[in-house]
Design a protein around this nucleic acid. Structure first.
Lengths: 175, 175
DNA sequence: GACGGTGTAAAGTGATCGTTTTACACTGCT
DNA sequence: AGCAGTGTAAAACGATCACTTTACACCGTC
Protein backbone atom coordinates (compact mmCIF):
# COMPACT_ATOMS: atom_id res chain seq x y z
CA UNK A 1 0.00 0.00 0.00
CA UNK A 2 1.53 3.31 -1.03
CA UNK A 3 1.96 6.29 1.25
CA UNK A 4 -1.02 8.31 0.15
CA UNK A 5 -3.44 5.40 0.29
CA UNK A 6 -2.20 4.55 3.77
CA UNK A 7 -2.65 8.15 4.86
CA UNK A 8 -6.16 8.54 3.53
CA UNK A 9 -7.46 5.27 4.89
CA UNK A 10 -5.96 5.98 8.32
CA UNK A 11 -7.49 9.45 8.24
CA UNK A 12 -10.87 8.10 7.20
CA UNK A 13 -10.88 5.75 10.16
CA UNK A 14 -9.89 8.39 12.70
CA UNK A 15 -12.25 11.04 11.36
CA UNK A 16 -15.11 8.56 11.38
CA UNK A 17 -14.32 7.29 14.84
CA UNK A 18 -13.49 10.53 16.66
CA UNK A 19 -14.69 13.40 14.51
CA UNK A 20 -12.82 15.73 12.17
CA UNK A 21 -11.93 18.65 14.40
CA UNK A 22 -11.14 16.45 17.38
CA UNK A 23 -8.61 14.46 15.36
CA UNK A 24 -5.23 16.19 15.53
CA UNK A 25 -2.43 15.92 13.02
CA UNK A 26 -0.18 14.15 15.53
CA UNK A 27 -2.70 11.34 15.89
CA UNK A 28 -2.93 11.22 12.10
CA UNK A 29 0.83 10.89 11.60
CA UNK A 30 1.06 8.20 14.26
CA UNK A 31 -1.86 6.23 12.82
CA UNK A 32 -0.58 6.52 9.26
CA UNK A 33 2.95 5.62 10.36
CA UNK A 34 4.67 8.56 8.76
CA UNK A 35 6.34 11.84 9.65
CA UNK A 36 4.38 15.06 9.59
CA UNK A 37 6.61 16.28 6.78
CA UNK A 38 5.55 13.39 4.56
CA UNK A 39 1.93 13.87 5.56
CA UNK A 40 1.98 17.51 4.51
CA UNK A 41 3.78 16.74 1.28
CA UNK A 42 0.90 14.46 0.30
CA UNK A 43 -2.06 16.18 1.88
CA UNK A 44 -1.15 19.85 1.75
CA UNK A 45 -3.39 20.84 4.64
CA UNK A 46 -5.95 19.37 7.01
CA UNK A 47 -8.80 20.82 4.96
CA UNK A 48 -7.39 19.23 1.82
CA UNK A 49 -6.98 15.93 3.64
CA UNK A 50 -10.61 15.99 4.80
CA UNK A 51 -11.70 16.76 1.26
CA UNK A 52 -9.69 13.87 -0.13
CA UNK A 53 -11.05 11.53 2.51
CA UNK A 54 -14.58 12.47 1.49
CA UNK A 55 -13.80 12.01 -2.20
CA UNK A 56 -12.25 8.63 -1.51
CA UNK A 57 -15.30 7.69 0.56
CA UNK A 58 -17.48 8.76 -2.35
CA UNK A 59 -15.44 6.59 -4.72
CA UNK A 60 -15.64 3.61 -2.42
CA UNK A 61 -19.34 4.05 -1.74
CA UNK A 62 -20.30 4.61 -5.35
CA UNK A 63 -20.67 0.93 -6.36
CA UNK A 64 -23.27 0.48 -3.60
CA UNK A 65 -25.68 2.84 -5.27
CA UNK A 66 -24.96 1.64 -8.79
CA UNK A 67 -27.91 -0.70 -8.75
CA UNK A 68 -31.22 -0.83 -10.54
CA UNK A 69 -33.72 -1.61 -7.83
CA UNK A 70 -34.76 -0.12 -4.50
CA UNK A 71 -34.40 -3.56 -3.03
CA UNK A 72 -30.74 -3.79 -4.03
CA UNK A 73 -30.14 -0.24 -2.81
CA UNK A 74 -31.14 -1.06 0.75
CA UNK A 75 -29.45 -4.44 0.70
CA UNK A 76 -26.21 -2.67 -0.14
CA UNK A 77 -26.74 -0.08 2.61
CA UNK A 78 -27.39 -2.81 5.15
CA UNK A 79 -24.21 -4.58 4.12
CA UNK A 80 -22.22 -1.35 4.42
CA UNK A 81 -23.60 -0.51 7.86
CA UNK A 82 -22.93 -4.00 9.13
CA UNK A 83 -19.33 -4.14 7.95
CA UNK A 84 -18.15 -0.54 8.01
CA UNK A 85 -19.79 1.52 10.68
CA UNK A 86 -23.00 2.94 12.05
CA UNK A 87 -21.80 6.40 12.99
CA UNK A 88 -23.96 8.38 10.63
CA UNK A 89 -23.24 9.90 7.25
CA UNK A 90 -19.61 11.03 7.21
CA UNK A 91 -20.43 13.70 4.64
CA UNK A 92 -23.11 15.36 6.74
CA UNK A 93 -20.91 15.10 9.79
CA UNK A 94 -18.13 16.94 7.96
CA UNK A 95 -20.60 19.56 6.84
CA UNK A 96 -21.88 20.01 10.38
CA UNK A 97 -18.45 20.27 11.95
CA UNK A 98 -17.34 22.96 9.54
CA UNK A 99 -20.63 24.85 9.56
CA UNK A 100 -20.59 24.80 5.77
CA UNK A 101 -17.86 27.43 5.86
CA UNK A 102 -15.17 25.46 4.06
CA UNK A 103 -15.94 25.52 0.33
CA UNK A 104 -13.88 22.48 -0.67
CA UNK A 105 -15.55 20.35 1.97
CA UNK A 106 -19.03 21.70 1.28
CA UNK A 107 -18.57 20.99 -2.43
CA UNK A 108 -17.53 17.40 -1.78
CA UNK A 109 -20.56 16.88 0.47
CA UNK A 110 -23.07 18.41 -1.91
CA UNK A 111 -21.59 16.59 -4.89
CA UNK A 112 -22.07 13.27 -3.14
CA UNK A 113 -25.63 14.07 -2.09
CA UNK A 114 -26.56 15.29 -5.55
CA UNK A 115 -25.18 12.09 -7.02
CA UNK A 116 -27.13 10.01 -4.52
CA UNK A 117 -30.41 11.74 -5.27
CA UNK A 118 -29.88 11.51 -9.03
CA UNK A 119 -29.18 7.80 -8.78
CA UNK A 120 -32.29 7.21 -6.69
CA UNK A 121 -34.32 9.13 -9.26
CA UNK A 122 -32.95 6.78 -11.93
CA UNK A 123 -33.80 3.70 -9.89
CA UNK A 124 -37.31 4.92 -9.15
CA UNK A 125 -37.83 5.74 -12.81
CA UNK A 126 -36.89 2.17 -13.72
CA UNK A 127 -39.10 0.67 -11.05
CA UNK A 128 -42.14 2.76 -11.88
CA UNK A 129 -41.66 2.40 -15.62
CA UNK A 130 -40.55 5.94 -16.47
CA UNK A 131 -43.17 7.81 -14.53
CA UNK A 132 -42.18 11.27 -13.36
CA UNK A 133 -41.84 10.68 -9.65
CA UNK A 134 -39.50 13.20 -8.06
CA UNK A 135 -41.39 13.09 -4.78
CA UNK A 136 -41.21 9.33 -4.48
CA UNK A 137 -37.49 9.55 -5.17
CA UNK A 138 -37.12 12.13 -2.41
CA UNK A 139 -39.03 9.85 -0.04
CA UNK A 140 -36.72 6.95 -0.80
CA UNK A 141 -33.78 9.31 -0.27
CA UNK A 142 -35.22 10.33 3.09
CA UNK A 143 -35.65 6.70 4.13
CA UNK A 144 -32.06 6.07 3.08
CA UNK A 145 -30.84 9.08 5.02
CA UNK A 146 -33.02 8.32 8.02
CA UNK A 147 -31.91 4.70 8.13
CA UNK A 148 -28.29 5.80 8.20
CA UNK A 149 -28.98 8.19 11.07
CA UNK A 150 -31.27 5.93 13.08
CA UNK A 151 -28.83 3.02 12.80
CA UNK A 152 -26.50 4.99 15.09
CA UNK A 153 -28.73 4.36 18.08
CA UNK A 154 -31.09 1.62 16.93
CA UNK A 155 -28.65 -0.63 15.13
CA UNK A 156 -28.79 -2.29 11.71
CA UNK A 157 -32.42 -3.31 12.19
CA UNK A 158 -33.28 0.29 11.33
CA UNK A 159 -32.06 -0.37 7.80
CA UNK A 160 -34.39 -3.35 7.50
CA UNK A 161 -37.34 -1.23 8.62
CA UNK A 162 -36.51 1.48 6.12
CA UNK A 163 -36.08 -1.17 3.48
CA UNK A 164 -39.61 -2.46 4.01
CA UNK A 165 -41.05 1.04 4.09
CA UNK A 166 -39.37 1.87 0.79
CA UNK A 167 -40.78 -1.23 -0.87
CA UNK A 168 -44.23 -0.40 0.49
CA UNK A 169 -44.13 3.13 -0.89
CA UNK A 170 -42.95 1.81 -4.22
CA UNK A 171 -45.69 -0.79 -4.40
CA UNK A 172 -48.30 1.82 -3.60
CA UNK A 173 -46.95 4.15 -6.29
CA UNK A 174 -47.21 1.43 -8.89
CA UNK A 175 -50.85 0.70 -8.21
CA UNK B 1 -32.77 37.31 30.81
CA UNK B 2 -30.52 35.95 33.51
CA UNK B 3 -26.89 35.05 33.03
CA UNK B 4 -27.24 31.32 32.65
CA UNK B 5 -30.11 31.55 30.16
CA UNK B 6 -28.12 34.04 28.13
CA UNK B 7 -25.11 31.75 28.17
CA UNK B 8 -26.95 28.64 27.13
CA UNK B 9 -28.88 30.27 24.33
CA UNK B 10 -25.75 31.91 22.97
CA UNK B 11 -23.93 28.59 23.17
CA UNK B 12 -26.77 26.75 21.45
CA UNK B 13 -26.61 29.19 18.57
CA UNK B 14 -22.84 28.99 18.13
CA UNK B 15 -22.69 25.21 18.49
CA UNK B 16 -25.47 24.81 15.96
CA UNK B 17 -23.96 27.25 13.53
CA UNK B 18 -20.27 26.33 13.70
CA UNK B 19 -20.03 22.98 15.45
CA UNK B 20 -19.10 22.06 19.01
CA UNK B 21 -15.37 21.53 18.83
CA UNK B 22 -14.81 24.42 16.45
CA UNK B 23 -16.50 26.84 18.84
CA UNK B 24 -13.92 28.11 21.32
CA UNK B 25 -14.60 29.46 24.77
CA UNK B 26 -13.46 32.95 23.77
CA UNK B 27 -16.17 33.10 21.10
CA UNK B 28 -18.63 31.85 23.69
CA UNK B 29 -17.75 34.53 26.25
CA UNK B 30 -17.93 37.23 23.63
CA UNK B 31 -21.29 36.04 22.27
CA UNK B 32 -22.77 35.63 25.74
CA UNK B 33 -21.40 39.01 26.81
CA UNK B 34 -19.67 37.80 29.93
CA UNK B 35 -16.22 37.14 31.32
CA UNK B 36 -14.73 33.68 31.19
CA UNK B 37 -14.77 33.58 34.97
CA UNK B 38 -18.54 34.03 35.03
CA UNK B 39 -18.95 31.51 32.26
CA UNK B 40 -17.05 28.87 34.17
CA UNK B 41 -18.89 29.62 37.39
CA UNK B 42 -22.16 28.78 35.63
CA UNK B 43 -21.10 26.10 33.22
CA UNK B 44 -18.26 24.33 35.00
CA UNK B 45 -16.64 23.05 31.84
CA UNK B 46 -17.16 22.92 28.11
CA UNK B 47 -18.45 19.37 28.29
CA UNK B 48 -20.96 20.39 30.96
CA UNK B 49 -22.00 23.36 28.84
CA UNK B 50 -22.60 21.15 25.81
CA UNK B 51 -24.62 18.78 27.97
CA UNK B 52 -26.75 21.62 29.31
CA UNK B 53 -27.29 22.99 25.83
CA UNK B 54 -28.55 19.57 24.71
CA UNK B 55 -30.82 19.26 27.72
CA UNK B 56 -32.21 22.73 27.11
CA UNK B 57 -32.74 21.85 23.47
CA UNK B 58 -34.57 18.73 24.57
CA UNK B 59 -36.78 20.79 26.89
CA UNK B 60 -37.54 23.31 24.18
CA UNK B 61 -38.18 20.64 21.55
CA UNK B 62 -40.34 18.47 23.77
CA UNK B 63 -43.68 20.25 23.13
CA UNK B 64 -43.27 19.58 19.40
CA UNK B 65 -43.52 15.84 19.89
CA UNK B 66 -46.24 16.03 22.52
CA UNK B 67 -48.94 15.48 19.96
CA UNK B 68 -51.37 12.69 19.22
CA UNK B 69 -51.17 12.26 15.46
CA UNK B 70 -48.49 11.63 12.88
CA UNK B 71 -49.88 14.56 10.95
CA UNK B 72 -49.30 16.95 13.85
CA UNK B 73 -45.83 15.47 14.42
CA UNK B 74 -44.63 16.38 10.96
CA UNK B 75 -46.39 19.74 10.97
CA UNK B 76 -44.47 20.60 14.11
CA UNK B 77 -41.18 19.44 12.59
CA UNK B 78 -41.79 21.53 9.49
CA UNK B 79 -42.47 24.57 11.64
CA UNK B 80 -39.28 23.99 13.64
CA UNK B 81 -37.13 23.56 10.56
CA UNK B 82 -38.55 26.67 8.95
CA UNK B 83 -38.02 28.90 11.97
CA UNK B 84 -35.02 27.44 13.77
CA UNK B 85 -32.56 25.79 11.44
CA UNK B 86 -31.92 23.08 8.93
CA UNK B 87 -28.49 22.00 10.05
CA UNK B 88 -29.33 18.48 11.06
CA UNK B 89 -30.05 16.95 14.43
CA UNK B 90 -27.93 18.76 17.03
CA UNK B 91 -27.93 15.67 19.25
CA UNK B 92 -26.49 13.38 16.61
CA UNK B 93 -23.98 16.04 15.63
CA UNK B 94 -22.79 16.25 19.24
CA UNK B 95 -22.54 12.48 19.36
CA UNK B 96 -20.55 12.40 16.14
CA UNK B 97 -18.14 15.14 17.17
CA UNK B 98 -17.31 13.44 20.44
CA UNK B 99 -17.19 9.92 19.01
CA UNK B 100 -19.52 8.81 21.77
CA UNK B 101 -16.59 9.06 24.19
CA UNK B 102 -18.09 11.64 26.53
CA UNK B 103 -20.61 9.88 28.81
CA UNK B 104 -22.58 12.98 29.84
CA UNK B 105 -23.09 13.99 26.22
CA UNK B 106 -23.84 10.48 25.03
CA UNK B 107 -26.43 10.10 27.80
CA UNK B 108 -28.17 13.33 26.82
CA UNK B 109 -28.30 12.24 23.19
CA UNK B 110 -29.59 8.75 23.87
CA UNK B 111 -32.15 10.03 26.38
CA UNK B 112 -33.58 12.37 23.77
CA UNK B 113 -33.70 9.69 21.09
CA UNK B 114 -35.29 7.17 23.43
CA UNK B 115 -37.93 9.73 24.34
CA UNK B 116 -38.59 10.47 20.68
CA UNK B 117 -39.02 6.83 19.78
CA UNK B 118 -41.29 6.20 22.77
CA UNK B 119 -43.47 9.12 21.85
CA UNK B 120 -43.77 7.97 18.25
CA UNK B 121 -44.75 4.52 19.48
CA UNK B 122 -47.52 6.15 21.54
CA UNK B 123 -48.72 8.17 18.58
CA UNK B 124 -48.73 5.16 16.28
CA UNK B 125 -50.58 3.13 18.90
CA UNK B 126 -53.29 5.78 19.01
CA UNK B 127 -53.53 6.03 15.24
CA UNK B 128 -53.70 2.30 14.66
CA UNK B 129 -56.05 1.70 17.57
CA UNK B 130 -53.67 -0.05 19.96
CA UNK B 131 -52.16 -2.50 17.53
CA UNK B 132 -48.64 -3.65 18.36
CA UNK B 133 -46.68 -1.89 15.68
CA UNK B 134 -43.06 -1.34 16.73
CA UNK B 135 -41.84 -1.58 13.16
CA UNK B 136 -44.25 1.05 11.88
CA UNK B 137 -43.14 3.30 14.72
CA UNK B 138 -39.50 2.77 13.72
CA UNK B 139 -40.37 3.61 10.12
CA UNK B 140 -42.02 6.87 11.19
CA UNK B 141 -38.95 7.58 13.32
CA UNK B 142 -36.72 6.97 10.31
CA UNK B 143 -38.78 9.31 8.16
CA UNK B 144 -38.54 11.91 10.92
CA UNK B 145 -34.78 11.44 11.18
CA UNK B 146 -34.30 11.35 7.42
CA UNK B 147 -36.37 14.48 6.89
CA UNK B 148 -34.20 16.34 9.39
CA UNK B 149 -31.04 15.19 7.62
CA UNK B 150 -32.25 15.69 4.05
CA UNK B 151 -33.56 19.17 4.85
CA UNK B 152 -29.92 20.25 5.22
CA UNK B 153 -29.35 20.04 1.49
CA UNK B 154 -32.87 19.77 0.05
CA UNK B 155 -34.63 22.36 2.13
CA UNK B 156 -37.95 22.28 4.02
CA UNK B 157 -39.70 20.51 1.13
CA UNK B 158 -38.02 17.35 2.36
CA UNK B 159 -40.18 17.52 5.46
CA UNK B 160 -43.32 17.70 3.34
CA UNK B 161 -42.25 14.62 1.38
CA UNK B 162 -41.54 12.69 4.56
CA UNK B 163 -44.87 13.86 5.92
CA UNK B 164 -46.76 12.38 2.99
CA UNK B 165 -44.78 9.16 3.14
CA UNK B 166 -45.58 8.76 6.83
CA UNK B 167 -49.29 9.24 6.21
CA UNK B 168 -49.16 6.72 3.38
CA UNK B 169 -47.49 4.09 5.55
CA UNK B 170 -50.01 4.72 8.29
CA UNK B 171 -52.95 4.41 5.94
CA UNK B 172 -51.61 1.16 4.59
CA UNK B 173 -51.10 -0.22 8.11
CA UNK B 174 -54.70 0.55 8.96
CA UNK B 175 -56.16 -1.31 6.04
C1' DG C 1 29.37 8.03 -8.23
C1' DA C 2 26.82 12.19 -8.17
C1' DC C 3 21.86 12.93 -8.19
C1' DG C 4 16.89 13.94 -7.55
C1' DG C 5 13.14 11.87 -5.23
C1' DT C 6 11.15 10.18 -1.17
C1' DG C 7 11.35 9.06 3.19
C1' DT C 8 12.68 9.69 8.43
C1' DA C 9 13.14 11.99 13.29
C1' DA C 10 12.68 15.88 15.99
C1' DA C 11 12.72 20.58 17.25
C1' DG C 12 10.39 24.88 16.65
C1' DT C 13 6.76 28.20 14.62
C1' DG C 14 3.06 31.31 16.54
C1' DA C 15 -1.66 30.76 17.52
C1' DT C 16 -5.32 28.98 20.00
C1' DC C 17 -7.18 25.53 23.10
C1' DG C 18 -9.85 24.97 27.79
C1' DT C 19 -9.24 26.62 32.25
C1' DT C 20 -7.57 29.27 36.36
C1' DT C 21 -6.03 33.21 38.65
C1' DT C 22 -5.45 37.89 40.37
C1' DA C 23 -7.38 42.10 41.42
C1' DC C 24 -11.28 45.03 41.63
C1' DA C 25 -16.32 46.96 41.48
C1' DC C 26 -21.21 46.82 42.26
C1' DT C 27 -25.24 45.06 44.55
C1' DG C 28 -28.61 43.92 48.28
C1' DC C 29 -28.96 42.00 52.88
C1' DT C 30 -28.28 42.31 58.05
C1' DA D 1 -21.00 49.66 58.28
C1' DG D 2 -19.83 45.32 56.84
C1' DC D 3 -20.12 41.30 54.18
C1' DA D 4 -21.41 37.68 50.92
C1' DG D 5 -22.64 37.22 46.29
C1' DT D 6 -22.12 38.20 41.65
C1' DG D 7 -20.19 40.40 38.22
C1' DT D 8 -16.06 42.59 35.45
C1' DA D 9 -11.29 42.89 32.84
C1' DA D 10 -7.13 40.87 31.80
C1' DA D 11 -3.13 38.14 32.39
C1' DA D 12 -1.38 33.67 32.71
C1' DC D 13 -1.55 28.43 32.78
C1' DG D 14 0.34 24.34 30.30
C1' DA D 15 -1.28 21.75 26.51
C1' DT D 16 -2.27 21.19 22.04
C1' DC D 17 -3.36 23.10 17.53
C1' DA D 18 -1.95 23.10 12.33
C1' DC D 19 2.13 23.59 10.15
C1' DT D 20 7.30 24.40 8.95
C1' DT D 21 12.02 23.71 9.34
C1' DT D 22 16.52 21.58 9.82
C1' DA D 23 19.38 17.83 9.17
C1' DC D 24 20.02 13.32 7.56
C1' DA D 25 19.40 8.54 5.18
C1' DC D 26 18.08 5.49 1.63
C1' DC D 27 16.91 4.65 -3.07
C1' DG D 28 17.15 3.52 -8.17
C1' DT D 29 18.82 6.05 -12.43
C1' DC D 30 21.94 8.19 -15.74
Amino acid sequence: MDTKTKLISAAEQLFDRHGFTATGMDKLTKAAGMSSRTLYKHAGSKTALITEVLQERHRRFQPLIEVDSVDALFNALEEWIRTESARGCLFLRAYGETGGDTPAITDAVLAYKARLYDKIKDIVAIETAEKETPELAEQILILYEGATAAAIYRGPEAIASAHKAALALLKQARS
